[in-house]
């Protein structure tokens, strides 16, 4: 059995690499995008708010799997063609940015107005207020929700399977179909567990650091 594991492990690790790259790139782009959209959602400019809310409604209201299929198989019918990998990234970034923007909107709105007024009276600029007063407080508030979404993303990334990307799940499934054994799928499960465990550990460590103040 160990021999067999050694045999398929390189393929599984190759798949893990793809899974991790989709995970990391999505996070790196979707979180800042979510912050930007979240701040915009707190503005008073109606048309943009309406537009953003429609976008969020669609992204949160339809299955991510549908969005993935729509972008890779659907859009080419309109002459818009993406590579598999890019289609996956676009779908994940658009979907997760919608969730993140709602999380950050809630974060910004839960800061008492008095904090901003207090900063204004101390003559802090808008940027300084954001940097030293608002951002650290919002960060602490949104951390648990952002953490949840981050762990979801690791598992959701397996959806790229349907557009034929060689991620961790596909690597396992290929081996199972070829060798008629459950072992590859069990290994895939274990690798996902390790990834989520590491992420959970990192999130907890960050949360602990923000717990010095309340």
């Amino acid at each position: 059995m160990l021999n067999y594991i050694q045999q398929i492990l390189p393929a599984l690790l190759g798949g893990t690499k793809v899974t991790l790259s989709i995970f990391a790139i999505t996070l790196i782009i979707a979180i800042p995008l979510g912050i930007l959209l979240g701040v915009t959602l707190t503005s008073k400019f109606k048309p943009i708010k309406w537009l953003l809310n429609t976008y969020i409604l669609i992204m949160r209201g339809t299955p991510l799997l549908l969005q993935l299929i729509f972008i890779f198989y659907g859009l080419p019918l309109l002459g818009i063609v993406f590579s598999r990998y890019n289609a996956a990234l676009i779908a994940f970034i658009l979907n997760y940015a919608a969730y993140f923007s709602e999380i950050f909107r809630g974060g910004f709105q839960s800061i008492p107005k008095g904090q901003i007024e207090s900063a204004k009276l101390l003559r802090l600029s808008k940027w300084q207020t954001l940097r030293y007063v608002l951002a650290p407080q919002v960060f602490k508030i949104v951390l648990p929700s952002v953490g949840n979404e981050t762990i979801n993303l690791i598992k959701d990334s397996s959806l790229v399977y349907v557009i034929g990307i060689g991620d961790l799940l596909r690597a396992g499934n290929v081996a199972t179909a070829r060798d008629v054994t459950l072992l590859p799928l069990i290994l895939v499960g274990i690798i996902y567990l390790i990834l989520t465990a590491i992420t959970t550990y990192i999130l907890k460590a960050i949360e602990k650091r923000t717990n010095v103040w309340r």
């Binding site: 008095g114 207090s118 101390l122």
Partner: peptide
């Protein structure tokens, strides 16, 4: 010219 102390002080909790 003007400084203020608010009713609920509004200290920055993160500092």
């Amino acid at each position: 010219i003007v400084g203020a102390v608010f009713q609920n002080y509004q200290l920055f909790p993160n500092l």
